[in-house]
């Protein structure tokens, strides 16, 4: 692409979209930045004096912050591992020709269409409920004490629920990537004496690298802001066991009505998300060019 002229024209033509996007982003960001420097609590109406870094100081020294940060990373990491590994395995399975392939593929995508609140409630009430849930029933059927998932392993349970929602997305992208693998390459590997595992690790997995990168990048963006699933299942509890940063910001600003502190938390979350993004780009972004 092309002449100086066409490059200038291209810049001119994308500028309205870029400007709109910038305004859309910058106005809320600027307001949040502004609020984060005020003592602004809805329970104490009146003057909202400028307090500088005070809100940040409170947010960052709050013991809940470290817990929430660790929980956020565990949640993102756990879901990524489960969805990528599961997605590859499911993709391999669905890539095999079998009867009813079309219907099965549609069924596999289905969880992605269920909205997060609904799926979390279904998991909470129909599967994980220690009295009425399906899991409790199965435990009892083999004579075991039902396990109260959301009380005893809240974060793991939420990771499970979120993984269930995102597995279809990963499967779909990885399946299409697998289908785009040149079958002659696999045949060549077969002639070269590669068994199934060699073919998988030397041919398929490198071919999937780019798709895996895409899955990780897109999912990370969404997983950093998981909220609904926590709200309807554990409310961040017990204690802080399943509170992530998003939920902590919500708790600060809307449960304690402290807009200033919540805004400071929001800014911290934005910065952390950017750090994660930079790391991701550094680590795997190079897979995207070439």
């Amino acid at each position: 692409m092309a002449t100086q002229h066409s490059r200038a024209a291209a810049r001119l033509m994308i500028s309205p979209a870029v400007l709109l996007l910038l305004a859309w982003m910058i106005v809320p960001l600027a307001m949040t930045l502004y609020f984060s420097t005020l003592r602004y609590n809805l329970l104490m109406p009146g003057a909202n004096p400028f307090v500088g870094w005070e809100n940040y100081h409170y947010f960052l020294t709050d013991p809940a912050f470290t817990t929430a940060l660790v929980n956020t990373l565990l949640l993102v990491g756990g879901v990524l591992v489960i969805t990528v590994v599961g997605g590859i395995l499911l993709g391999l399975l669905l890539d095999q020709p079998f009867w009813g392939q079309g219907i099965v593929r549609i069924l596999v995508i289905a969880p992605f269409f269920v909205m997060p609140t609904v799926s979390a409630l279904v998991w909470k009430n129909m599967f994980m409920n220690p009295v009425n849930g399906l899991f409790a029933y199965l435990f009892k059927a083999v004579g075991l004490q039902p396990f109260d998932f959301l009380a005893q392993a809240p974060l793991a349970s939420i990771i499970l629920i979120v993984s269930w929602q995102w597995l279809p997305f990963a499967t779909l992208i990885l399946l299409t990537a697998l289908q785009s693998l040149d079958s002659e390459q696999l045949e060549a590997a077969e002639m070269d004496g590669a068994g199934f595992f060699s073919k998988f690790f030397f041919i398929m997995l490198p071919h999937l690298a780019r798709a895996i990168t895409v899955v990780i990048l897109i999912q990370t963006i969404f997983l950093l802001s998981i909220f609904a699933e926590i709200l309807v299942t554990t409310n961040g509890g017990p204690g802080l066991a399943s509170t992530n940063l998003t939920y902590l910001v919500y708790a600060q600003s809307l449960l304690q009505f402290d807009v200033g502190l919540g805004s400071a938390g929001g800014i911290v979350a934005v910065i952390l998300a950017n750090i994660v993004a930079i790391f991701l780009m550094r680590m795997i972004g190079k897979n995207l060019d070439a």
Binding site: D182, E184, E187, M191, F202, I203, P206, H207, A209
Partner: peptide, 21 residues
């Protein structure tokens, strides 16, 4: 016999080189 055991080597139309190696 499976392909690898036949002692034959094949050159494919698309060459089928492994692009990441």
């Amino acid at each position: 016999l499976p392909p690898a055991k036949r002692g034959l080597a094949m050159v494919f139309q698309s060459y089928a080189l492994y692009p990441h190696m």
